[in-house]
């Protein structure tokens, strides 16, 4: 990264708004290798701050939002769609509090661009319970095992744990500890979290 990229004069509420110089270079076609270049994007000056219309499918509902091209999925969920279950702990991919399911896999919403999540199925903690309020077995297990103290990491823990079970990585306490290592708990409720994951694993039946 150059020093110019570290400068932060413009004011924004978001960390990852990006300013693009409006004088990008012209088109340099690729000739003579791997056939005809099939670019769909024209080299035209574009203001990155201009809002893009993005359609995000979250918890089975389609949300049309206007975002900066490089807003993270986490910011889009929390600030544009209003789903604040995914937490912003470190915003650096280290704590796991923002874990969501994307096409069934656990990913970190703070390291995913909102625009890159288009066409993919996102599930957050708000999408787990049945419409009548019946909790997901993993939510039930976290309650039954008292698997949280302050609760801040819990949404990420629960989504990560569901993936952990689906991956087949919840067959022993050691395995759960290894495959849940991407979710930190500042209160150190780990023994209870492990117990909850193992309990739900049996109830989820896979």
């Amino acid at each position: 990264m150059s020093d110019s990229e570290r400068k932060t004069e413009p004011v924004s509420k978001r960390r990852r708004n990006f300013l693009i110089g409006s004088a990008m270079t012209g088109v340099v076609p690729v000739i003579g290798w791997a056939g005809q270049a099939q670019a769909t994007t024209q080299a035209a000056p574009v203001d990155a701050r201009a809002a893009l219309n993005v359609a995000l499918r979250v918890n089975g509902r389609l949300h049309q939002v206007q975002v900066d091209a490089r807003m993270t999925l986490l910011d889009a969920l929390r600030e544009e769609i209003g789903l604040t279950g995914a937490k912003k702990g470190c915003d650096h991919g280290q704590c796991g509090a923002c874990t969501v399911l994307v096409d069934g896999r656990r990913e970190l919403a703070c390291l995913t661009l909102a625009v890159a999540a288009q066409g993919r199925e996102v599930v957050t903690i708000e999408g787990l319970a049945a419409p009548d309020g019946t909790l997901h077995p993993m939510q039930e297990a976290f309650v039954a095992q008292d698997a949280f103290q302050c609760g801040y990491c819990t949404p990420g823990q629960i989504l990560s744990a569901i993936s952990c079970v689906h991956e087949g990585h919840a067959t022993s306490p050691d395995q759960v500890r290894e495959y849940m290592s991407g979710n930190l708990c500042r209160c150190a409720a780990y023994p209870n979290i492990v117990a909850a994951v193992l309990q739900a694993s049996q109830q989820m039946g896979d």
Partner: peptide, 14 residues
Amino acid sequence: VYPATQAQWLTRPV
């Protein structure tokens, strides 16, 4: 990419 970015803004298209 993101953790290595100290800035609020990148100057380059992605």
